[in-house]
Simulated scan of single mutants.
Amino acid sequence: MLKSSKRMVMTVGDSRVGKSTVMKLLLELYQIQGKRLKVYDHDNRDRLLAYKDLVCIEKIDFFNKQTDRMFIDLVAADIDIILVDMPGQHIDKICQYIVESELLEALAEYGWKLTFLQPISHRTDCIDYLTQIIQTATNNANYVIVKNYHFAPEFREYDEKMQKTLLTIGGTSINLMALHRNHYQAMEKAVKPYSQVCQDLSIILFWRSFIFQWIKNFRNSVINNNLAIKYLGLD
């Protein structure tokens, strides 16, 4: 059996809630710690293109039986973290895939832990999505919610309807602070890892300073949360 410190982290959630953004922020944290990574990307928009020279990224289609190679990685000795960017929406298909592929059983057999990483907005759909994920995986997985403040200053639906349930099963939440749309667009247009954008002189210093603080705030939200550190394989 492989080391129990190995972890698969799946980003799940609605479309356009920040899944790829959170994944890119995490990629740099893993790089800092020297984690050996493998990334599977279902998205066909090349949102992770800027990181292709830093980490092995493979395209995958979860709905066309292309996932055998992901299971092969469970016995690889040179991988610590498998990051999986699941498709937006399609929650029924995703839960069906988890059950039919016996993913939870395979991970347990080879000593891997599973974490669902879900960015949320203020929409009720996010709560429905999380509910289905929890009903499918129950306590066989860990859960990290990312409150994306780009969408709203508060998360009333989550706080009132879901937070208690999440805490009961040992889940936790971290924060992704809002970033001005112009700053974010400049960052994405640069097609560079986020930390390198902060050194890009083609972007005005005022914007780069906000981007730097945005990255720093996210990292602090993670490293100041012991559960998040554990569930994301950063311990």
Rank of each mutant, 00 (worst) to 15 (best):
E102K: 10
W112T: 07
R123D: 11
I60V: 15
F62N: 08
D78F: 04
K93C: 05
L104S: 02
A106D: 00
C95D: 04
C95A: 14
D80N: 11
D53C: 02
M86P: 02
E58M: 14
E100H: 14
Q89T: 11
I72M: 06
Q96K: 15
N64S: 11
N64L: 13
V99C: 06
I72L: 11
Q89A: 12
C126W: 11
Q96Y: 10
Q118F: 03
H122C: 02
V99W: 03
G111L: 09
C95H: 04
Q66T: 10
L107S: 05
I94M: 14
I120R: 03
F116S: 03
H90Q: 15
I81C: 12
I72N: 13
F116N: 01
I120E: 09
V75I: 08
K65Q: 14
E100I: 00
F116C: 02
F62Q: 04
Q66E: 15
V99R: 02
V99E: 12
I127Y: 00
D61F: 08
E58R: 15
T115P: 01
T67C: 09
E100Q: 14
L107W: 04
I120T: 01
C95E: 14
A106N: 08
D53T: 05
G88K: 08
L107C: 04
Q89W: 10
E105G: 07
L107Q: 07
K65Y: 14
H122D: 14
D68I: 05
K52R: 14
D92L: 14
D85Q: 11
F62V: 06
T115E: 06
L104M: 08
T115L: 09
D53G: 14
M86R: 07
Q118W: 00
G88F: 05
P119F: 05
I60N: 05
Y97H: 09
V55R: 13
I98K: 07
A106H: 06
E109T: 01
S121R: 08
I82A: 04
N64V: 13
K59T: 01
I120G: 02
V99A: 08
I57R: 12
A76D: 11
Q96V: 04
Q96D: 09
K113G: 03
C56Q: 15
I127V: 11
L54K: 10
C95F: 05
L54R: 15
L107Y: 06
L49F: 10
Y51G: 04
I60K: 08
Y110H: 09
T124C: 00
E102H: 15
E102G: 12
D68Y: 08
D73Y: 07
P87L: 07
K65M: 10
K65W: 15
A108S: 01
H90M: 12
L104W: 01
V99L: 00
H122L: 00
L49N: 03
P87A: 13
I98E: 05
L54W: 14
T67I: 01
Q118L: 06
Y110M: 00
G111I: 02
D125I: 07
I72E: 07
